[in-house]
Amino acid sequence: MEIIQTSARKRESYKVEVKSSLLWECALGIAAITNTPLLSSLEKKESEWKTIKDALSADMLSQLEVVQKHNTWKALLQLLHQKEFTSIEDFHDTVSQLTTVELKAACLPFLGGAHQADVQKAAEGHKESMKALMAAAEDHSFFSAYISFICETDPSFLRAHLCSTLEGWYQTVIQPEAEQLSRVLTADVTAKKAMLKRKHPEEMVTWATGGINYSPEPSVHTVLLIPHIVYRPWNVEADLAGYKIFYYPVSNQSLHPADPYTPDQFLVLKYKALGDEQRMKMIKMLAEREHTLQEMTNRLGMGKTTVHHHLKILKSARLVQNNGPVYSLNGNVLQALSDDLENYLDSGL
C-alpha cells in the first residue's frame, strides 16, 4: 500500500552531551581490575595491572574483593551521576550525607520508568519490591544478585566500602598521574564537542563509540558521552532516567597529541579487519543476509575455529555484530568508513 507523506516534521532524536571526570576514570579502573576475564583484552598489559595491585594497600585489596564479588563498581558509577563532583572529598561528603534510602535508591540500576516506584520501595526495605526488581533484571548477567546485595547489605558497611574503594584507588592510581590523565580526557572532550557541531547526534554516538548504533527511544532525551582511558578499547553502557550513557575509549589523537599523524584506533581496526581476503568474503556474505557461524563455516569451507577467529576480528572493528549465534553486518559503520577516513585526513588542517 502506498503512503503519501504529508508531514514535514523531522524525526526527533536525542541530544548529545560530552563530559569527563577523573572520578569516572577512577570507577572504571576499579571495574576493569575486578573483571578478571576481561583483563587480557584491555590495552593495559596484565603486567601493568599486577604493578597496580602490588601498590595497593591490604585494605584496598580487601575492598576490591567485595567489588569483584558484588559488582559494586556499578554503585560507584551510579553515585557519580548524582551531581558534578569537584573532588574525591566532595564525593565522600555527599555520600556521607545521604540517608540510607537515598543511598540505596541511588545505587540501584535504572530498569525503566515502570520500575521506579519499586526502586524507591526496595530502598526502603520492601522485600516484594526488591523481588520485582530482581525479576525485571533476570536476563542481565549480574543485576539480580547486585540488587539483592544493595537492598540487604548494612548501609554503614555499603557507605564505608564505596567511599574507601573510590578514595583508595584515586590516591594510589589516579592522583600520581592526575595532570596527564586530566589533559587527555579534556582534550578528547574538546575534540568530540567540535565534531558534535558537524555531526547528527546519532552519527556522533556511532563515531565516538567506534560503531554503536543507538536509535532514539521515547524515554531517552539525552545521550551522555564520557571518555575513558583505562577501559580501552571497550565501551561501557549504562542507563539512567532520561539518559543513555556511553563511557567510550578516548581516541589515539587525544592520547598522542604531539603526533598529528596518529589515526584513531577504531579506524585502524576497521581497515586491518578489511585487509584480509577471507574476511572480505564474510563481509559480502553478511551484506547479502544474516548468517550463523555454522552457515559461514559451510559456505567458506573453513574450520569453525578459523571462521570464529575472523568474525572476532570483524566484531572488534565494529563491522559485524551478533545476536546469539546469528551474525549480521553493521552497515552504518561500513558506510561511514569513508567519512571516518576523511575526518582523519582533515584533522589538524
Rank of each mutant, 00 (worst) to 15 (best):
N323P: 00
T262G: 00
L314M: 11
E290F: 02
R299F: 12
G301V: 10
L225P: 10
Q321M: 05
H256Q: 06
P249W: 04
T306D: 15
S316Q: 11
A258E: 15
T306Y: 14
V236D: 02
Y247T: 03
M282H: 01
K281F: 06
G324L: 11
A241W: 03
T222I: 12
H308Y: 13
Y261S: 14
A241V: 05
I283P: 14
M282I: 15
Y247V: 01
M302E: 14
M302W: 02
M296A: 14
L255C: 10
A241Y: 08
K281C: 02
V268A: 04
K315N: 05
Q253R: 13
K281D: 14
R232Y: 04
Q265M: 08
N332E: 15
Q265Y: 10
R232M: 04
V326C: 06
N252V: 00
L240P: 00
N323Q: 15
K272V: 06
H228L: 03
R318Q: 07
S251F: 06
L319C: 06
T306L: 11
D264W: 06
V326G: 00
G275P: 00
Y271D: 08
V326A: 04
E237S: 06
M282V: 15
G275T: 01
K272H: 12
R289I: 04
K270V: 12
M280N: 12
D276C: 08
D264M: 03
Y243K: 15
P257M: 07
P263T: 04
R318H: 14
D239M: 11
I283S: 12
K272Y: 08
D259C: 01
N323W: 02
Y248S: 03
V333P: 03
R232A: 11
V307A: 11
Q321V: 07
I229D: 03
V250W: 12
Y327P: 02
E290I: 01
G301N: 10
L286H: 10
P249H: 09
N322Q: 15
H228Y: 04
G275S: 12
H221Y: 14
D239Q: 07
L293N: 07
P227G: 10
T297C: 13
T262A: 15
M280Y: 00
E288N: 10
L274C: 06
L225T: 05
T305M: 12
L293W: 03
K284F: 14
D239W: 11
L225Y: 11
H221V: 07
T305H: 14
Q321W: 01
S328I: 00
G331Y: 11
A317Y: 09
A238T: 03
Y271K: 08
S316E: 05
I283K: 15
I283Y: 13
D259R: 04
L311Y: 09
L225H: 10
N332K: 11
P257A: 03
M296C: 09
A258N: 12
E237M: 10
T262Y: 03
H309S: 14
V326Y: 04
